Simulated scan of single mutants.
Amino acid sequence: MSNPLIEARGIGKTYRMGSGTVPVLSGIDLTIAPGDFLTICGASGSGKSTLLQILGGLQRPDSGELLWRGEATRGWSRARIAAWRGRQVGFVFQSYQLLPEFSAVENVDLPAVIRGEGDREASLALLRGFGLAERAEHRPNELSGGEQQRVALARALRNRPSLILADEPTGSLDRETGREILRYLTERVARPEFASSALVVVTHDPEIAALGARRVVVEGGKLRET
């Protein structure tokens, strides 16, 4: 394995539920290298989405540490985490999370706009690659579920992130559309410009889980590689 892109060491996470606590992750160790295609599977509520959010800096672990290219992130400020996430991480969610008042191309360009590097033509080129050139000016409520997810994929890849995290990206779609979405994603990430990026997909679907070059299972708060 090449030098790690991101490492989780002894990660633990517990949620408060009423007056008690519920442990979700315990002692998770995981190393992801550039070029990895990793799938994370497990039963509903097993903690796989929590693990993904910790890897992407959306949540902090209660114990253990996360290292980015060998550097511990524990002492990073919120501002630094946000800046790192905006540049290095691309998220794809089951619910798309597109801004309803923006057109498809505006949604795709948003990550670059936030960084002061907006480029409408670059975002249009991405949409063309996802077969959505003629839908660029449509708002999310004018798009099908599969089209919205393709817009979300294009947005996640807009800044050419080093770490692409997809949380049940086909969960809201029928099986045929879901397969099409995964094909778009994996074909795009296989291009030379993403050769040093890692793709991590959380899924409960065994067929999708089997697509990964590596597959891990979260169960009982622990991680098992298959």
Rank of each mutant, 00 (worst) to 15 (best):
M1I: 15
S2L: 13
S2C: 11
S2P: 11
E7C: 09
E7D: 05
R9Y: 11
R9A: 12
K13L: 04
T14Y: 05
M17H: 11
G18K: 09
G20F: 02
G20M: 08
T21M: 07
L30E: 03
T31I: 11
G35S: 02
T39A: 00
A43G: 05
S44W: 00
K48T: 03
K48V: 04
Q53R: 13
L55F: 00
L55G: 00
G56H: 03
L58S: 09
G64S: 05
E65D: 15
L66D: 09
L66R: 13
T73G: 14
G75C: 12
A83W: 02
W84M: 03
G86P: 07
G86L: 13
R87A: 12
R87Q: 06
R87S: 10
Q88V: 03
V89E: 13
V89Y: 11
V89W: 14
F91K: 07
Y96D: 04
L98C: 01
L98Y: 00
L99K: 01
S103W: 03
N107V: 02
V108T: 06
D109S: 02
P111H: 00
P111M: 02
A112F: 09
V113S: 14
I114P: 15
G118H: 05
G118A: 05
G118F: 02
D119I: 00
R120Y: 03
L124W: 11
L124E: 13
G129V: 02
F130P: 03
G131S: 08
E134P: 07
E134A: 15
R135K: 12
A136K: 13
E137T: 09
R139M: 14
R139E: 13
R139C: 15
G145I: 08
Q148C: 11
Q148D: 08
A152K: 06
A154G: 10
A156C: 07
R158A: 15
P161A: 02
P161E: 11
S162T: 08
L163Q: 04
L163W: 04
L165I: 11
E168H: 01
D174M: 04
E176P: 02
E176A: 08
T177P: 12
T177C: 13
G178M: 09
E180P: 04
E180I: 14
R183M: 03
Y184N: 05
T186A: 00
R191D: 01
P192T: 13
E193D: 02
E193V: 05
F194Q: 01
S197E: 00
L199V: 03
V201Y: 04
T203I: 05
H204I: 10
L211Q: 10
A213I: 08
R215Y: 04
V216Y: 06
G221Q: 02
T226G: 13
T226Q: 15
